[in-house]
């Protein structure tokens, strides 16, 4: 596998002063892996019971984006991207995410700068649905854009006295109806029980893991996300599911103020100055945790894919 690192690649990113991560997936998987439950229970490293089944999110992989008709699409920086996929099974939007209906990648690190302020996530990505079947005989029956419900990226952080999640998702389709708007992570004023879909004793607290926790409602609202003001955007989704275009994504938070600052997708910049981040009491053992997250969710019984060419995480 060739080394695709080159300083000129940074010209398509906008890093802050200190680059923490530059992962180009033509160089390898760089520590990104599927998220899975904690194997901590008796008798044989079993998992704690949870209302959300997390051991069916598929493995992430290095993809050449190879399809039936065009063959290999490749990536932006080389031949390989990190692919996050679902299994071909979905529930309705307002239901608890069913096992396998999401895919999720995570990288695990910790903070190192005691004077840290801003933190930024950038990536070049693309997304598509599997060309597995044609719906009928109407025009464009073989185009399945509305099989992709949502995808997003964010941070799971615990530092200076709080755990908190920040991030942005693109809500592409709700039960088959194209929506195409951005939402940011922000928890509604609900109880831990409500956050875990009416379950007492689920290990998760309100605000943690909004990728799959938090009640969803048929109009697209969500107890874990809020609509980004003026956040409708028609991302570039090509005319057939086997043509993928690489898209720029960037969001910036202030870890001192605990606020969002800015978000960018393609060439559009959204001001998020002053939007608060939901703060949670710290969990045991994980002070300093800095975990970048990327996920995708399907909206039909079809596999959907999120490809990430490269990720740059920086701070100042």
């Amino acid at each position: 596998m060739q080394n695709s690192f080159s300083p000129h690649i940074f010209s398509r990113f906008q890093p802050l002063k200190n680059t923490l991560v530059y992962d180009c997936f033509s160089n390898g998987q760089n520590g990104w892996m599927a998220l899975m439950p904690n194997f901590t229970q008796a008798p044989d490293f079993d998992t704690r019971k949870s209302v959300v089944t997390k051991d069916q999110w598929p493995p992430v992989m290095l993809s050449s984006a190879t399809y039936r008709y065009p063959g290999t699409h490749g990536a932006l920086s080389g031949n390989y991207s990190l692919k996050i996929s679902t299994r071909p099974i979905a529930g309705r939007y307002e239901d608890i995410p069913v096992p396998g209906s999401m895919g999720h990648a995570i990288k695990r690190m910790t903070f190192h700068n005691p004077n840290r302020k801003r933190l930024q996530f950038e990536m070049w990505f693309s997304y598509t649905a599997e060309q597995d079947r044609v719906r009928g005989d109407e025009d464009l029956a073989g185009l399945s854009e509305n099989a992709i419900r949502a995808f997003g990226a964010g941070f799971d952080i615990q530092e200076r006295g709080n755990r908190y999640f920040s991030g942005i998702r693109y809500l592409n389709s709700i039960n088959g109806d194209i929506t195409k708007k951005w939402q940011y992570i922000s928890a509604s004023e609900v109880t831990d029980n409500q956050w875990a879909f009416g379950t007492d004793g689920d290990w998760c607290k309100r605000g943690v893991d909004p990728q799959w926790y938090g009640q969803r409602y048929a109009d697209g609202s969500h107890d874990g996300f809020k609509d980004l003001p003026n956040g409708s955007q028609q991302l570039c989704y090509n005319e057939t599911d086997c043509k993928i275009n690489w898209i720029y994504f960037r969001f910036l938070i202030d870890t001192q103020k605990r606020e969002y600052v800015e978000f960018q997708a393609q060439d559009r910049v959204f001001d998020m100055e002053g939007i608060p981040i939901t703060l949670i009491d710290p969990y045991k053992r994980i002070d300093g945790l800095l975990n970048p997250l990327i996920w995708v969710e399907n909206d039909a019984n079809r596999t959907v894919f999120l490809y990430v060419d490269s990720v740059l995480i920086s701070q100042d």
Partner: peptide
């Protein structure tokens, strides 16, 4: 890559399609 994790199977199945071209 973990393809299946401590899962109980009672019927035939296929593992998740995996790209391994590298």
């Amino acid at each position: 890559a973990p393809l299946e994790l401590k899962k109980q199977f009672k019927e035939s199945f296929q593992t998740h399609p995996f790209e391994a071209g590298w």
